[in-house]
């Protein structure tokens, strides 16, 4: 059963000419972790706030646990929606200690037992009497999560929870958060503008743009097989080539040669398409069919990002992003050969 359902929800802020959220429909299954991913202004935060009850939809309805909480003639205020929320920069109550924050507004009879329980879940037993400013950023994040979980909400909402953490901490917090949510069996909706956060933490990613959904899928689907140019570009960088579906129906004839492709949407041979080829899908290979000259290289530690100038059939040139293994030696000006692996090639629906 869907814990959260949005049906044709539209939100237009007063004075705005375009809707922040534009007849958006989405459902989130029980126990799933969903991330709304998109650039700022795409409507992801508004969507989250519509679910939380901090914004009222102008059209459509929002259901939580099967009950309509917002819609024509229906309105349930945030405090009665059975949700938990983890805010950007945590929003811990500075006048209360850790136990006071986690136990905030819990029924008295099982408050201390529940506080102990969730603090144990987030690994903060022993921190009960600390004040928020006396603990680290990562610990504040755990307190915020414990506070959100304490009331056993149907769903926990996360507004850019990693934005205020530094790079090392966010990598470890992603795994930690996922473990805790799965252990608690909680449904969770995240809002993020960072693709690596989204890929790491989600069961499902919802890519949004201009108040609409661009693509819904597992992290693997969204990364490997983007449906649109926007998704291909926003979720990891990519090379876009124009071409036609090959005669076998399992490859694309592009401007730089043929690329085998498992994700052609079963389009008939000869159809003009745009194909996204991730840099990871281009492998340097002395025997490879494509030739180019290295224009730029960036050593990132995990890979070498190279920009290679490739000559098209008609004699003009274009740049292609290629990932090389960090052990390889790639020098500007080198003539290299490479080939296209089929894994990260996807035909984009135009």
């Amino acid at each position: 059963m869907a814990d959260i359902e949005l049906r044709d929800v539209t939100k237009i802020y007063p004075g705005a000419s375009t809707p922040a959220v534009d007849s958006l429909s989405l459902s989130v299954d029980h126990g799933h972790i969903v991330t709304l991913l998109g650039p700022s202004g795409c409507g992801k935060t508004t969507t989250l706030r519509l679910v939380a009850g901090f914004e009222r939809p102008d059209a459509g309805s929002v259901l939580i646990g099967g009950a309509v909480v917002a819609g024509p003639g229906a309105w349930v205020p945030p405090e009665r929606r059975d949700i938990g929320m983890v805010f950007q920069e945590h929003a811990l109550f500075p006048h209360l200690d850790v136990a006071g924050n986690v136990g905030f507004n819990l029924p008295k009879n099982d408050r201390s037992a529940r506080v102990d329980e969730v603090l144990d879940l987030v690994g903060l037993t022993g921190f009960e009497r600390r004040m928020p400013h006396e603990i680290s950023g990562g610990q504040q994040q755990r307190v915020a999560l414990a506070r959100a979980l304490a009331r056993r909400p149907v769903v926990v909402l996360f507004d850019e929870p990693f934005a205020s953490l530094d790079a090392d901490l966010r990598v470890s917090m992603r795994a930690e958060l996922r473990r805790i949510l799965k252990a608690a069996g909680t449904t969770a909706v995240f809002v993020s503008h960072d693709q690596s956060d989204a890929l790491a933490i989600s069961d499902t990613i919802v890519v949004m743009r201009d108040g609409r959904i661009e693509q819904v899928g597992t992290p693997r689907e969204v990364y490997q097989f983007p449906h649109t140019r926007f998704v291909a570009d926003f979720v990891g960088r990519t090379n876009l080539f124009e071409g036609r579906i090959g005669t076998d129906g399992r490859s694309v004839e592009t401007e730089i040669g043929s690329a085998s492709c498992r994700h052609t949407h079963s389009l008939p041979p000869g159809t003009p398409v745009v194909v996204s080829v991730r840099a990871d899908s281009l492998e340097l290979d002395a025997e490879g069919p494509i030739v180019g000259r290295v224009k730029e290289t960036t050593y990132t530690g995990r890979a070498i990002d190279a920009v290679v100038e490739v000559e098209r059939a008609d004699g003009t040139t274009r740049d292609v992003m290629v990932h090389a293994h960090p052990e390889q030696v790639v020098v500007c000006g080198d003539i290299v050969r490479f080939r296209v692996l089929p894994d990260f090639v996807a035909v984009i629906e135009e």
Binding site: A52, M85, F93
Partner: peptide, 9 residues
Amino acid sequence: EAARSLGLG
């Protein structure tokens, strides 16, 4: 808003 999400009017 945090207080609202924790059940306060």
